[in-house]
Amino acid sequence: MSGQNDAIDFAALMQATQAGDQDAYRRLLEAVQPMLHRYVRRRISSPEATEDICQDALLTVHRVRHTFEAGRPFEPWFYAIARSRLIDHVRRAKRIGLHEVQSETLPETASDQDLPGWDRFLEVLEALPPAQREAFSLLKIDGLSTAEAAEKVGVSVSALKVRAHRAYKSVRRAVLEDGD
């Protein structure tokens, strides 16, 4: 870690995080996020995959924050998680390989087409990034569970939830703007 991060005591912030200090946690996440992004970006060419891995790694940091030991350096703990998430992603991508066929167009159903605002909804959906659109479609149109959708896409459940959450937000924002 270099530059402005030299002055940041990550271990102290992490200990405060473990105690429930939200300000410390925010500072920690904002400080480690660019480092994480650089770490993943050096190893993964796709910006979308980089973003997914970073989110997944930060979600994991959140879930297993109790495993950080006071008095130990933060960096080995943090990068071990990042590396593990990166490896998981690469393995999943390899496993799925060329078998995955990304659907660029949404399936149409006769009843849905008659709904008011359906065309606008499709426009909003089409404008979403492919990963978010896929997550949204699988969960809300195909009606899959998060576990089934994650399996189909080849990402973790948490990563799929994040994608879907971002898609909901975008759709909602667009709908609200239309309403105004």
């Binding site: 995080t17 473990q18 429930g20 925010r26 996440l29 660019p34 910006p47 973003e51 989110q55 971002r166």
Partner: peptide, 28 residues
């Protein structure tokens, strides 16, 4: 925000911070 510039949006960071609860750290 700084987060957004690096690919993650601030909402994601906010959601993690909002969900923060104290935990009991492990000791090997």
């Amino acid at each position: 925000g700084q987060s957004e510039a690096n690919g993650l949006n601030d909402e994601f960071i906010d959601s993690l911070v909002e969900r923060l609860e104290p935990v009991r750290p492990v000791r090997l």
